[in-house]
């Protein structure tokens, strides 16, 4: 990318911009001031914390995998094909982005719960989803999928189709074009989309507590544990909140330097 000369910005713009940064940084920094550092180590390494962190990471990894499995084809279809109702499909897919997660949880319950539309039949096969780690993964996938789809579709549209046209004109089959040209070109966008989906999964709370319940080791992820502890053991809740902040910062830091977000 060539460096272009900057047009001067109006000075007053920096004041609200700075306020916006402070608005995000201040609460996170304030969290750190509430930490009981003497017990911090033992609080974040307690059995309950480790079990919740482990569960959070495993379920978030699984939901990110599901997002990739279904989100990559979906984003590609949205970016590269034309059919009637495409924009309607896009709107529907983005729904979880604006829906309160608790509504997502109730909707998932109506679908995969024991009395749910699909759950009823799954139950007949002895497959139970509610109150299991699978429910956690489904809740996370539901809320995270739009993050991956939006990032990837944006990347695909920015990359354009010219290389694909060239590859096709040289005789490459559609699958080859997708595999050798399209996806490699949008790899940074794909990576940032996956990281965003992972981060969103890690923070999922509303849909999980509604749909999956809360039990240590099975469904009590780190946000649920924090919610549980916040009234009985504020020190532990704050310590684990900071742990979640650190994990989130690390996750975002993984892709941010490439400027892909």
């Amino acid at each position: 990318m060539s460096r272009t000369r900057h047009v001067g910005l109006p000075r007053w713009l920096f004041a609200p911009a700075l306020l916006a940064v402070a608005f995000v940084v201040l609460p996170v920094a304030s969290l750190a001031t509430r930490i009981n550092w003497a017990d911090f180590g033992s609080l974040v390494t307690s059995d309950a914390a480790m079990s919740a962190l482990g569960l959070s990471i495993r379920t978030s990894a699984a939901s990110t995998a599901l997002c990739l499995l279904f989100g990559v084809p979906l984003a590609t279809v949205l970016a590269r094909s034309e059919f009637r109702g495409l924009s309607a499909v896009r709107s529907v897919v983005l729904l979880p982005l604006v829906l309160p997660p608790v509504v997502g949880g109730i909707a998932l319950l109506a679908t995969f719960g024991r009395q749910g539309l699909l759950g009823e039949h799954l139950e007949a096969f002895g497959l139970r989803i509610a109150f299991t780690s699978i429910a956690v993964v489904l809740a996370q996938t539901f809320v995270s999928l739009p993050f991956l789809v939006v990032s990837l579709e944006g990347a695909l549209r920015t990359a354009g189709e010219k290389y694909e046209v060239v590859a096709a004109s040289l005789g490459a089959a559609p699958t080859t074009v997708l595999r050798r040209v399209t996806l490699p070109l949008v790899l940074p966008g794909l990576a940032s989309g996956a990281v965003l989906a992972f981060a969103r999964s890690l923070g999922e709370f509303g849909a999980t507590i509604t749909f999956a319940g809360s039990l240590e080791g099975t469904t009590r992820t780190l946000p649920l544990l924090i919610y549980n502890l916040r009234v009985t053991d504020a020190d532990a809740a704050v310590a684990m909140s900071l742990l979640l902040v650190v994990v989130a910062v690390v996750v975002i830091g993984l892709v941010r330097p490439r400027g892909a977000l």
Binding site: L109, G113, R114, Q115, A130, F131, I209, A212, G213, S214, L215, E216, T218, T219, Y227, N228
Partner: peptide, 20 residues
């Protein structure tokens, strides 16, 4: 060995009412 430990009694009731 509960499948879930809820944060309030109304949450427990809701899960029973829903048949979950």
């Amino acid at each position: 060995a509960p499948v879930s430990e809820e944060q309030s009694v109304t949450d427990v009731l809701a899960k029973v009412e829903a048949g979950e």
